[in-house]
Amino acid sequence: MNENMIAKVLFVIGVAQIAAGVIIGLITANIITYGVSWPVFFAWMLGGFVSGMLFIGFAENIRLLHNIHKKMQPLNKTPDTRQEPSIKNPRPEWTLDEADRTKIYEHYPNETIVEVVPAPQEDYCLVRFKSDNGYYVRVVYTGGFGIEETSDAKVRQSIIKWYNEQG
């Protein structure tokens, strides 16, 4: 399991609380017969926003701790149970699920994606594009709540080097 289900649930609860704060604020502010009570609306909206952001913050903490735990697991295994991806073992041990693959295609709607290759580093993918001038690649991180291009030059270079060695 690549993602922590509790983190996902807490994130959804946080977003729902923010939305509920706005909706309940609108409803309760309009109950008064002489017009909209803006202080009531902002009180409900602020309460929903703060409690929702707390849940989203807890979800992010759990997600980060889960990622740290996953990265530390290979240290506890015997050397025979895990092989590092290399030329002899070109496929990484993790797989890119369809939801993340769909997120990648939705993140680049105006570009022609030729292939999406899971990299040896978990939650990183190399995305190969085609343009009028030829082909180019980007390294994206899929481990968060969305897709983002990695800004870490060392990770990007190591994944591109790994991809080029694969042929």
Rank of each mutant, 00 (worst) to 15 (best):
Y135V: 08
K154Y: 05
A119I: 04
V139C: 05
I113S: 01
S151R: 06
I87N: 01
S131N: 14
T102N: 08
E149M: 08
R138G: 04
R138T: 02
V117A: 02
E111H: 09
D123T: 03
S131T: 11
P109I: 10
Y141R: 11
Y108T: 13
A153M: 06
N110Y: 12
P118H: 04
P90M: 13
R91P: 01
F129R: 07
L96I: 06
Y105N: 06
K88N: 13
K154E: 10
D97Y: 09
T95Y: 05
Y108Q: 10
Y141N: 09
Y108L: 13
D123V: 01
W94N: 06
Y108F: 15
G134Y: 06
R101N: 10
C125F: 00
L126H: 02
V137L: 03
E122W: 03
A99T: 15
R91N: 14
R128A: 06
C125K: 00
E111K: 14
R101D: 01
R91H: 13
C125R: 00
F129C: 09
S151V: 05
A119H: 03
Y136Q: 11
N133M: 12
A119T: 11
E148D: 07
K154G: 06
E149P: 09
E122I: 09
E122L: 05
F129W: 08
I87D: 02
T150G: 09
Y141W: 13
A153P: 05
P109N: 10
N89T: 12
E106Q: 13
N89W: 07
I113W: 01
P109K: 09
K88L: 13
